[in-house]
């Protein structure tokens, strides 16, 4: 089959010849983006949590010094990885590690590592902000019933912070889906690399990248919808059921006051 003359025909041709390559490329893009975002979130949470550990004058001097050093190192990590392009980091880490330390990492390891460490740096700031944005009253309420700092974080603060930063996590995933294309510089055969190969071989840049654009958009759009649905699920229903079978029963129990509103806001 030879190359058709018209645009749509060419697209059809590319799809029939290279469809599986495009799909494999898209699959790799998604795999790197999702794994990188997940690990990045874990790193971000760890760093963000450490950065918000309260230290006061009453704490032991050793603890204060140790925490100070750890926080400093984490700050450097965050600033360096936020402040340099991921493409440069990819070259630096992948080729640098083998040239300087003789450490030849596999290309997959490099891909996951670079995206994770990058996302981690961004998420650390987001998580820190998310934690600080929770009303201090929540912490006091938890302390007042005897929860320790760790219990307070796990049961009260982090679930609320996580909910608040969900849109940011989604944002990061979408950015990662798009930005994995910079990994082509170290030879990761993801969607962009695949497309470039197809386009160059047949000199069909317009058609090949049309296909790539559509795939990228479908991937990001689907992810953003799924995340939005998940957010709504986390919020729970707007209404609640009164836990009584008699709907006319007086709901306030022991005293009378005007009828309770069923919902607010």
């Amino acid at each position: 089959m030879s190359m058709p003359e018209d645009f749509l025909g060419r697209i059809g041709y590319l799809l029939s010849e290279y469809g599986p390559s495009f799909l494999t490329g898209a699959g790799k893009t998604m795999l790197i983006a999702i794994v990188g975002t997940l690990i990045g979130c874990l790193i971000g949470f760890a760093v963000g949590i450490i950065q918000t550990i309260p230290v006061g004058k009453e704490d032991h001097i050793g603890k204060r010094v140790l925490l100070g050093i750890i926080k400093l190192i984490l700050n450097i990590y965050v600033e360096v990885f936020r402040g340099t392009p991921m493409m440069a980091q990819a070259m630096f880490i992948y080729f640098g590690a083998s040239a300087v330390f003789g450490f030849n990492m596999s290309i997959w390891f490099a891909a996951f590592f670079i995206v994770s460490i990058n996302t981690g740096a961004y998420m650390a700031e987001t998580v820190r902000g998310g934690i600080l944005s929770i009303d201090p009253g929540q912490t006091e309420g938890a302390k007042a019933i005897g929860m320790t700092h760790v219990q307070t974080m796990i049961n009260v603060i982090l679930p609320q912070a996580l909910r608040n930063i969900m849109p940011q996590i989604g944002n990061n995933l979408i950015i990662n889906i798009k930005d994995t294309c910079v990994l082509s510089v170290i030879g990761v055969v993801e969607l962009f690399y695949t497309t470039k190969g197809v386009a160059g071989a047949l000199y069909t840049y317009f058609e090949a990248f049309t296909i790539a654009m559509v795939i990228y958009f479908v991937l990001t759009f689907t992810c953003s919808r799924i995340l939005r649905a998940w957010e709504n699920k986390l919020d729970g229903p707007d209404n609640y059921d009164l836990a009584t079978t008699d709907t006319l029963a007086h709901t306030s129990g022991m005293y009378s006051y005007t009828a309770p509103r069923k919902e607010e806001e």
Binding site: D135, G137, Q138, E140, G141, A142, K143, A144, I145, G146, M147, T148, N155, V156, P159, Q160, R163
Partner: peptide, 21 residues
Amino acid sequence: NAASYRSRVGMVFQNFNLFNN
């Protein structure tokens, strides 16, 4: 141990401080 003491002495705040989640 402040936490175990607080579990025996409760507190109710002006702004409720119920856990929003």
